[in-house]
């Protein structure tokens, strides 16, 4: 079992302190961006992570790579505890677990050439030493992502968004990583370019045996690329399952609502289908509701919801959901 899991988070928490105004700057509370997440990413799969903005999915992606320091819980990468890693071990992790960022206009240093950017992981980790070897590896990487090797001497501002994202991908892949977190990697691209980049990512996965965590608010895109999908709400993973199964038969009311918000490309069907529209706003992550965190907006909320925090439980083959509708299982103590 352990063997086919590359990354495992257990009760992972990332809380950001809220400080009072004024000189003392006392800690008066915490924004619970990630609040007790259990998640497994299996070797070679693409796990889609969806949720509305502010639900903590990007923070979770960052915390898995320890780019954000977790407040509690553990992350295992290939059996090693990431949260307890020493500096050198962490540096080694940075080669094997990388990130592709959302905004290709901001994620490349405007004063570094494309070649310098792509070569950075090589230099940092002492791979392909020597200017000549490095240059040929950079050329190889650029061609791998569908760019011409000659662009190495050019600067980011000379490229389009899609091309820049390819450069970002080339940088991520330079150290031959196992695990790639795509943090909204296609969100700021044109739709036509999105498809190209998605196909590129998929081709690279086949070619290099990569494992992806695909963080996105775009459920349609996630469904298209993912093997499994995890749905996040207010700092917690509320449902996980195989992509098609979860899309066809969502078990958590939030997932149902989320899916019903995805437009169907057929006017007749679109008119005919039932839509679950959620009432109210997402509660603040600094004041998470007691019991089930979704109960304030849930159309099915009933007795146990305000008191018992639901745990993930099996609701189908390989599908788990955290909802009392599937039997009240509250292994988690109620958090205030």
């Amino acid at each position: 079992m352990t063997d086919d899991v590359l990354v495992r988070a257990r009760d992972l928490q990332v809380h950001f302190p809220v400080r009072s105004k004024g000189l003392r700057r006392k800690v008066v509370g915490a924004v619970r961006a990630v609040d007790g997440v259990d998640l497994e990413v299996r070797r070679g799969e693409t796990l889609g992570l969806v949720g509305e903005s502010g639900c903590g999915k990007s923070t979770l992606g960052n915390a898995l790579l320890r780019l954000v320091e977790p407040t509690g819980g553990t992350v295992e990468f290939d059996g090693a505890d990431v949260t307890a890693m020493s500096r050198p071990a962490l540096r080694a992790l940075r080669r094997r677990a990388v990130m592709v960022f959302q905004d290709p206009y901001a994620s490349l240093d405007p004063r570094a050439t494309v070649g310098q950017t792509v070569a950075e992981p090589l230099q940092v980790h002492g791979l392909h030493p020597g200017a000549r070897a490095r240059a040929s590896r950079v050329a190889e990487l650029l061609e791998l992502v569908g760019l011409d090797a000659s662009v190495a001497s050019r600067y980011p501002h000379e490229f389009s968004g899609g091309q820049r994202q390819r450069v970002g991908i080339a940088r991520a892949l330079a150290g031959e990583p196992d695990f790639v977190v795509c943090d909204e990697a296609i969100a700021s691209l044109d739709v036509s370019v999105q498809a190209q980049v998605l196909n590129l990512l998929r081709r690279l996965q086949d070619q290099l045996g990569l494992t992806y965590l695909f963080v996105s608010h775009d459920l349609a895109a996630v469904r298209h690329v993912s093997d499994r999908i995890a749905v996040m709400y207010l700092g917690r993973v509320v449902e996980v399952g195989p992509a098609e199964q979860l899309a066809a038969d969502p078990q958590h009311p939030y997932t149902q609502a989320l899916l019903s918000a995805v437009p169907v490309p057929s006017p007749a069907l679109e008119r005919a289908r039932r839509r679950t529209v959620l009432a109210g706003d997402v509660p603040s992550a600094a004041a998470v509701p007691s019991g089930c965190r979704f109960r304030t907006r849930c159309p099915h909320a009933f007795d146990p919801c305000p008191d018992v925090d639901p745990a993930l439980q099996a609701v189908g083959a390989g599908q788990t959901a955290a909802c009392h509708l599937h039997g009240v299982v509250g292994s988690r103590e109620a958090r205030v």
């Binding site: 780019l67 960022f101 490349l108 405007p110 992981p121 940092v124």
Partner: peptide
């Protein structure tokens, strides 16, 4: 972001 990006590859 590019500073974070460099850090993410181990700089």
């Amino acid at each position: 972001v590019f500073v974070r990006a460099s850090r993410s590859v181990g700089a």
